[in-house]
């Protein structure tokens, strides 16, 4: 190690994560790993089961005793919390809705089409939640950031899935992109209207979200165009039917039949 390296390392060694922050970051990472486990290779022809991310979530999110009891009291056979179904950003059970309920549903979406539909639904749900909050004047910057982050994740997931399926099934890619683009246009209009009709404080969050929705709609349009281009490339080239001139053939035959005489 050079002298300069030793000197700089020594001078900055105090710049580390606070122990508590590092521990919390690690716990969240473990929870994230449990929500999105690695795919396993099939064992003896059977598909390895996807672990449902429930106990890891409870263990690592430091949920209060009252909350845990509330969740356990309302869980179904499949471990889903119905109480979280209508939660909005900022509500106590909103993380359960997004990180447990929705993730569990998503674990059963196998085909590209179902995954695309699932992530599109989630993206639209985020916008509906934001619209509801905005209409009530409750879309502050913190909630807006939370919604924006989730919306970006869902739209990114849609884009990835559409790009994966584009080569093998450009028709599907074009269809879903068209639907998603139209849905985003609608939500953009709803949010824009809320901005116009609402107060300045609630507007700020909605304004930023509108811009994000616009960007996502442009991206969906781009995916649609790419898929449509691929559809055009994949279409078999149809040869133009050749018009047969019957009279020309007859003349040729006659020429052969009637040799020239000098």
């Amino acid at each position: 190690m050079s002298k300069l390296e030793t000197q700089l390392k020594k001078a900055t060694k105090h710049m580390v994560l606070v122990e508590e922050d590092k521990a919390l970051m690690r716990e969240r990472l473990v929870s994230y790993m449990e929500h999105k486990p690695l795919r396993r290779e099939p064992v003896h022809g059977r598909r390895a089961a996807t672990r449902l991310p429930l106990f890891g979530f409870f263990r690592t999110h430091h949920l209060s005793g009252a909350l845990v009891i509330a969740l356990l009291a309302t869980t179904s056979t499949f471990g889903m919390s119905f109480a979280a179904g209508d939660a909005l950003p900022g509500d106590l059970l909103y993380p359960v809705k997004v990180n447990v309920n929705e993730e569990v549903k998503g674990a059963f979406k196998i085909s590209h089409e179902s995954r695309i539909e699932f992530e599109q639904t989630r993206a639209e749900l985020r916008l509906k939640e934001a619209s509801q909050l905005a209409s009530e004047g409750r879309l502050d910057s913190k909630k807006q950031e939370a919604v924006a982050k989730l919306f970006a994740e869902h739209t990114e997931a849609v884009t990835e899935q559409v790009q994966e399926v584009e080569e093998s099934d450009p028709v599907l890619a074009a269809e879903v992109s068209t639907e998603f683009e139209a849905a985003l246009d609608t939500h953009e209009a709803v949010l824009a209207r809320l901005i116009v009709e609402g107060d300045d404080e609630g507007n700020k969050g909605a304004q930023q979200l509108v811009e994000q929705v616009r960007t996502a709609a442009n991206e969906a349009e781009k995916l649609r165009e790419e898929a449509e281009e691929r559809m055009t490339d994949d279409e078999p080239v149809q040869e133009e039917p050749v018009a047969v001139d019957a009279t020309q053939d007859v003349e040729i035959e006659q020429d052969h039949a009637t040799p020239k005489t000098e």
């Binding site: 050079s2 002298k3 300069l4 390296e5 000197q7 700089l8 020594k10 001078a11 900055t12 710049m15």
Partner: peptide, 16 residues
């Protein structure tokens, strides 16, 4: 690499 900064260690982070 063989050089060292002629500066107090506490002031290095702010310089960086």
């Amino acid at each position: 690499d063989d050089m060292e900064l002629a500066l107090d260690a506490q002031r290095i982070p702010e310089l960086l």
